[in-house]
Simulated assay, not measured.
Amino acid sequence: MKSKILYFILAYVLLIVVMFLLPPFSAGDYSLLRNTISQLGAQATPNAWVMNVTFAALGLSVMTAGWKFLKNYWLQRILLLVFGVSLVLVAFYRHSPIDISLDYSNREHQIHSIFSSVTGFSFTMFAFSMAFIFKHMYDRWVAMLVGVFSVLLTMLMYSIADFAGIWHRMVFIMSFGWLIYVFGSKRKKKL
């Protein structure tokens, strides 16, 4: 079990490094403030493979790290699988490039948008559902707050789009940080 959480932690560290250090090596007009993490892995974008490998590593490692932890909780396992698989598929079906005058597949972008939405929705449902299986009230409240902040930050991405890159990074840092806390902790779940 410890090696599974270790791989997940390594994927999280990779995420942090990539989402802050890849932008200068990405599209020339990429902005940390305005552009999302998905746009780092976009079609026709320099070094996009780095972000896409990171998405796939995160998706695979979160499923592996959480599977045993959720042994008796089939709903949470299903939500975790949907979350992880859709995150992996985000790596294969990529966002449109920042410069839409470049040649790209709109169909691939639309599929990316679907999987991106499924990733966010399934994570939010997963966070809320975890509030029902924790033994400690503190963990229940944190799970609910993570779900609420996921929704609020996503709404900010669309309502204050000039800072979509910041909101998106906050969602990823919070979500995966919380998952490491949950899957790596010794806290007991409600029986």
Results as ranks from 00 to 15, higher is better:
Ser117Ile: 05
Phe123Cys: 08
Asp139Glu: 06
Leu58Cys: 05
Tyr93Glu: 08
Val85Cys: 10
Asn72Ser: 08
Ala44Ser: 15
Trp141Pro: 03
Ser101Val: 13
Leu179Ser: 03
Lys71Gln: 15
Ile78Pro: 01
Gln39Trp: 02
Phe8Gly: 00
Met1Val: 10
Ala131Leu: 02
Tyr7Glu: 15
Ile98Val: 03
Trp67Phe: 15
Gly59Pro: 09
Trp167Ala: 06
Leu153Phe: 07
Asn72His: 12
Leu80Met: 02
Leu152Asp: 05
Ala42Cys: 10
Val90Ser: 03
Met137Cys: 03
Ser150Ile: 07
Phe69Val: 11
His95Asp: 14
Leu6Ser: 07
Trp141Ile: 15
Lys68Thr: 11
Phe8Pro: 02
Leu40Cys: 04
Trp67Asp: 09
Leu22Gln: 01
Pro23Arg: 05
Ser150Gly: 14
Ala42Ile: 11
Asn47Phe: 13
Leu75Tyr: 00
Val85Trp: 04
Ser38Ala: 14
Ser96Asn: 13
Lys2Asn: 13
Thr64Cys: 10
Leu152Glu: 07
Phe149Ile: 06
Val88Asn: 03
Leu80Ser: 02
Ser61Pro: 04
Met1Lys: 10
Lys71Ile: 09
Asn72Tyr: 01
Arg187Leu: 02
Lys186Asn: 14
Asp139Gln: 03
Leu87Glu: 07
Val82Asn: 00
Phe128Ile: 13
Ala44Asp: 15
Asn106Asp: 13
Leu40Asp: 03
Ile100Ser: 08
Leu14Gly: 09
Phe55Tyr: 15
Val82Pro: 03
Ile114His: 09
Ala48Gly: 07
Ser185Asp: 00
Asp103Pro: 03
Ala65Cys: 11
Thr36Ala: 08
Trp49Arg: 00
His112Glu: 01
Arg77Glu: 01
Gly28Leu: 09
Trp67Ser: 12
Gly41Pro: 08
Ile160Val: 15
Thr64Gly: 05
Gly41Met: 11
His168Asn: 15
Lys135Cys: 04
Gly120Met: 06
Thr154Ala: 04
Ile111Tyr: 10
Leu156Ile: 05
Gly41Gln: 07
Tyr93Cys: 13
Leu21Gln: 01
Ala42Arg: 05
Ala57Ile: 03
Leu32Cys: 02
Phe123Tyr: 06
Asn72Asp: 14
Leu145Met: 08
Leu89Phe: 11
Leu152His: 00
Thr45Arg: 01
Leu102Asn: 12
Val17Ile: 15
Ile9Cys: 12
Thr154Trp: 07
Leu81Phe: 10
Lys71Ala: 12
Met174Thr: 10
Leu75Cys: 00
Ile37Val: 13
Ser101Arg: 12
Lys135Met: 13
Lys2Met: 04
Asn72Thr: 08
Gly41Ser: 12
Trp49Asp: 04
Phe163Tyr: 15
Ser117Asn: 15
Phe128Cys: 12
Leu32Met: 14
Lys68Ser: 11
Phe134Ser: 06
Gln76His: 14
Ala143Asp: 00
